[in-house]
Every structure is written in C-alpha cells, then in structure tokens.
Design a protein around this nucleic acid. Structure first.
Length: 553
RNA sequence: GCGCCCGUAGCUCAGUGGAUAGAGCAGGUGCCUUCUAAGCACUUGGUCGCAGGUUCGAUCCCUGCCGGGCGCGCCA
C-alpha cells in the first residue's frame, strides 16, 4: 500500500464515520499522510483528527479514536494507534508494505509521474543568455535547475515548453559586432566592447566564412559581423548547453519582435488599456499603478524602444501561443524586474499572480583551495559553463547546482565536487545505483531472475531495514509532485541522498544473494525486487536532475 | 533610504504550522577470507540571529531590530 492509497483509505474512513453518524464533519478533499521520524510511531501517521477536531466540535483524541475504529478493519492495515495530541499512527501489514516494491518495478520509468499539474500549459524560460559571449556560471545554475524543473513539471502532468529568449537586437549586439570587427582588423577593444579570446576566434570564423567581408564598406562589415557573429556565438552556446544535457523547445529571437511589428502592437495594446503617457520626450508605462516603484520607459527620447517594451511584446506573444502561465527564471541580480514585470502583466489585463511566475535564484560563487574565485571580466576570471564542466564533469556540475535551494547562495567547491570520494554527494548516490546494478548482475549470473510480480512473497520483507527502504521508495511520487509544485528540484537531490543512505544500511544488514551452496529462498526473490525497485527510483530521480545512473563505478 | 534573498551543529547545508530540529563533512571508536569498504555501526556537537505577536501547537506565518549578499538607468 502506497501513502497515496493510504490517504484514500483514511479519507474513506472519515466518510464512513460520517455516514454512520458517529462523526459530524465535512469530509476533507485530501488527507495528509506523513512518515513519522520515530519508528515506534508506525509506518505512517496522519494529523487528520487534529485538523477535523474543531469542525467536529470534539477533542482531537476523541475524533482520532473514532477514525482508528474505522481503520482497524481495513485490509493491509495491521495496527492503528492514537498518539500524542491526536495523531493516528498506522502500521501496515508486511505484505501490503512490500507491495510498494512490486509497484515500483512494474511502473518502471513512469514511477514518480503524477497528474497533480495536469491541464496546465506552462512556458518555462531559463538561461536566456545573450549571444554576445559564452554562458557564465550564473546561467549554468539556471541550466541545471531549469532543466530539472522542466522535467519535474512534465512528470507531474503539466504541458511544458522550455524556452530560451535571446537578445539579438539593440545596443548590446551592436557592441558585440563592433568588438568582432575590431578584432578582425587587429584594432583594440572598443569602448564598452567585449573582450576575451572568444571574440578573436569568432571574428576569425566570420572572416573564414566570408572572405571578402573586410573589403566591404564599414557599415556593411558591421552588419555582416553582427549576423554571422550572433549565429556562430549562438551555435556555440547551444553546443555547450547540449553537452550539459540541456536542450530547449524554442529559441526565441528578440529581433523577430521588432521585425514583425509586435513591439508597436504591444505598445498600442498598453495604450488602449490607458496606462501609457508621454513625458520628457519619451513614452512611459504607468507601472506604478500596479505597485511598481517607478514608471518605466517604453520608447526612448531618440525613438528607440526599450528592452522592457520588448518584454511586453514577448509576454504577449507567449500568451497568444496559449500558455496559461509564463514562468521566468532569473538571477538575483535581476530581481528588480519582478515589480515592473508584474505591473506589465496587470497593465495588459492579466492576473500577475496566476499568469506570471518569476523565480529568482541566488548567485553562485566558486571556491578553489578554500579561496573564493572572485569573478571579474576585467581580470579575466569569468567562469564559464564549460570551465565548470571541465573541472568537475557534467554530472557533478549539474548535481551540485541542482541540490541547493535556489534561495541559497552557493559556494561551489571545485575541489570537493571533482573528488571521487564519499564527501561528494553525487558519488554517494551514483554509487548506490552501481552497487545495486552489480548485485543484480550477480543475481543474473546465479540464474536468479526476478520472475513474475504475482509470485513475489512481499510479506518476506519483514526486516526493519527493509521496511525503511520500502517506506522511502513510497515517498518518491510525493517528492516529485511537491518539488514540482514548489519549484524546488533540490528536494529530489536531497531525497536521493536519503534513499541512497537507506539502501546502504539495508545492504549492510540484509544479505540478498545466497552464499556458496545456499539455495535461493522467497526472501532472496523479494529482496531482489526491493533492490530493483530502489535502482528504478535512483535512476528516475537522477534522470530528473539530468545526472547519469552508472551501472558500474 | 527602499526592495529581494540568507542567518539552523566546528564547516557546507536540508527541514511545504506538528511528536525528542536532521544529513554530509570534520573529530573519536569499531566493522572487509562473504553480494562494490566510493559502504556501515557507535560517538562528540544546537539560546534554529535577537525581541515581540498570531494558535491547540512556530525553525516555518506576521511586525520590529541586528548581521551578510544582491539590486534600485530613457543599459541590456
């Protein structure tokens, strides 16, 4: 019996008590099932009596006693106790608990998938680094977290489009083009230009692709360097991200918004809504009406549109593509945008609390030899996605970035994460998977197949450590669902570390394969199913994080 | 000045209003002729920054304060 099934059982018990007139209360939609920390408190606990007590007009313990009476007859439930202020502690029958292993193996890759977000159409935008240079460490955090979140949302039933918005218009791109041009001519880096080896490399690639380019008039040269440079830089970004395991469904060009007239349309739309005014020669959006701390310029005094105006058009475009909710992941250095973005959504007549969600992630510091690596473009100590991958590998990089809460600044210790020892959490988890794989190979060598699900004696899983492992496996769907709802992929990583630990403890005290001349027993088979189930969950969890589950280490 | 995030064990950090606040590392003591010791067991270590409030119950929610990080352009 899984916690979800138990939740239904308890809810039915409430309904039954109401039906029989021994309890007078509205039956709750959902009953929360918890896993007690103290093993003496049974397999599962619920606070349902505490929650219903007030509405029922009776003391919590009394409500609990009523429900305990209903639950005691249920198949698969071996004991129900009322404890503390009114908790119901439920102990499952051994075979009912053991069935979790069978369910996990049967579900395979689908174990952990739920429908809690079914029907939601989400646009998930992350990374969105401009194609004026390689992806930095900050964007790398979003690549790891955003990709994991995308998988979580999908696993929870949402329709998700992963989107990368790139700025290929405006002054920043002009500076990029001018920097390439300067490099091609051997001139110094222009004012506010981009430095770095990659500029010279891309400039050389542009010249190689279009040999006559340096003979064109200056303005045309700049245009060619812009077009080809952006293409080359963006191809490089995509390649790096793909090596990191991150691929987007849509790469959205800001330039197209300018070219299709979407910007003018967006400004006109805002004007119709009555939130646009002109002052000091510029066109403004009155975002202060919707809680922003100052109004924002849409069209500058020189007639150019702002990046914010493009954001308006881009938001409208997403909504017109049918997304219910626009989710944008940004670094902490951009958190100031929340106010204006929310205001923009409100100004367009949408609900900023349901149609827009902005996730802010704190910054990443790298540490080497115990010393923080201060990043500085000037000093040439900018750390790139590829640097991180080169230092610790893609698995460790993704895991390290995804295991921390996004609200937490990370000090990522390159020494620790490149170490292949047990103080490196990703190896602890991967090792558990490799260990199971090895064991299952051993079982195959001994001619011990898993066999049919119906033939497994799940009641044979009676050891304390087996129960611990089964309960841990039963948590996985709820971990995935809550991590998706809370936009917190790190919960999956933490869960996996706990699961790996639970497995190692099981392994240490429960021999799986027969030794020497011993015969396989029903316990052997049941434990093999338990191992296979654990491997499945480790694989599924690591897959969410985009980390490999090695068969051998 | 205003806004966002953080403050939990020596260190790095989990903890979606519930029972005795957890993990890893570091320190100490043990466990490999036996399925991967990249493992396990035991052990040391806490005014959950401080002060109020909300309620059956607060590390969690609210208010104020103290520390640290990041922002506050007709830049993108």
């Amino acid at each position: 019996m899984t916690p979800e099934q138990l939740s239904d059982v308890v809810r039915s018990a409430v309904a039954a008590a109401v039906e029989r007139g021994v309890l007078s209360v509205a039956v709750p939609d959902e009953v929360v099932i918890e896993r007690p920390k103290n093993p003496e408190h049974g397999d599962y606990a619920t606070n349902v009596a505490l929650r219903l007590a007030k509405a029922a007009g009776r003391p919590p313990r009394e409500v609990a006693e009523v429900l305990a009476g209903e639950l005691r007859g249920v198949e698969g439930v071996s004991a129900v106790d009322v404890a503390g202020p009114g908790f119901l502690n439920v102990t499952l029958a051994k075979d009912a608990l053991g069935q979790i292993a069978v369910r996990v193996v049967a579900a395979g890759e689908a174990y952990g998938c739920t429908e809690v977000l079914a029907g939601q159409r989400l646009n998930l935008e992350f990374v969105s680094a401009n194609p004026t240079g390689p992806v930095h460490i900050g964007g790398t955090r979003w690549a790891a977290v955003g990709d994991a979140l995308g998988r979580l949302l999908t696993a929870s039933g949402a329709q998700v489009t992963r989107e990368y918005y790139f700025n290929d218009a405006g002054a920043q791109i002009d500076r990029f083009a001018l920097s390439l041009l300067a490099a091609a001519h051997g001139r110094p880096v222009p004012e506010d230009g981009y430095a770095g080896d990659y500029i010279a490399e891309i400039a050389a690639q542009v010249v190689a692709a279009e040999p006559g380019v340096l003979e064109l008039p200056e303005a045309e040269q700049q245009e060619r360097f812009r077009v080809l440079g952006v293409d080359l830089m963006f191809a490089e970004i995509k390649r790096t991200l793909a090596d990191f395991g991150v691929v987007f469904d849509v790469y959205f060009s800001e330039r197209t918004l300018h070219e299709t007239g979407a910007l003018e349309k967006a400004v006109a739309r805002l004007r119709e809504q009555g939130h646009v005014y002109e002052a000091d020669g510029a066109v403004w959006l009155r975002t202060t009406t919707f809680g922003d701390d100052k109004d924002r310029v849409l069209v500058k005094g020189d007639g150019e549109t702002t990046y914010f105006a493009a954001d308006c058009a881009y938001y409208l475009d997403k909504r017109e593509r049918g997304f219910d909710k626009v989710v944008i992941m940004l670094g902490a250095d951009h958190h100031g945008y929340i106010g204006r973005y929310k205001a923009l959504v409100a100004a367009l007549g949408d609900d900023p609390d349901t149609n827009l969600e902005i996730l802010i992630g704190q910054l990443v510091n790298l540490v080497r030899d115990g010393e923080p690596l201060r990043m500085s473009k000037r000093a040439g100590t900018v750390v790139l996605l590829e640097d991180l991958v080169a230092a610790v590998g893609a698995d460790a990089a993704r895991y390290a970035l995804a295991r921390a809460s996004v609200d937490q600044q990370i000090d990522l210790d390159l020494d620790l994460w490149s170490r292949q020892t047990n103080d490196n959490p990703v190896f602890y988890v991967q090792y558990a998977h490799a260990r199971i794989s090895s064991l299952l190979r051993g079982a195959a060598d001994l001619g011990l197949p898993l066999g049919e699900a119906g033939d497994v004696d799940t009641a044979a899983l009676a050891h304390q450590r087996e129960g611990d492992l089964l309960r841990a496996l039963g948590e996985f769907p709820r971990v995935i669902a809550s991590a998706a709802e809370l936009r917190a992929p790190h919960r999956v990583a933490r869960y996996l570390e706990e699961l790996a630990g639970t497995y190692h403890r099981f392994y240490d005290s429960c021999r799986v394969l027969p030794r020497g001349d011993e015969e396989a027993t029903p316990v052997t088979t049941a434990r093999l199913w338990l191992c296979a189930a654990t491997a499945t969950v480790l694989r599924n969890g690591l897959a969410v994080l985009g980390v490999s589950a090695p068969e051998r280490m």
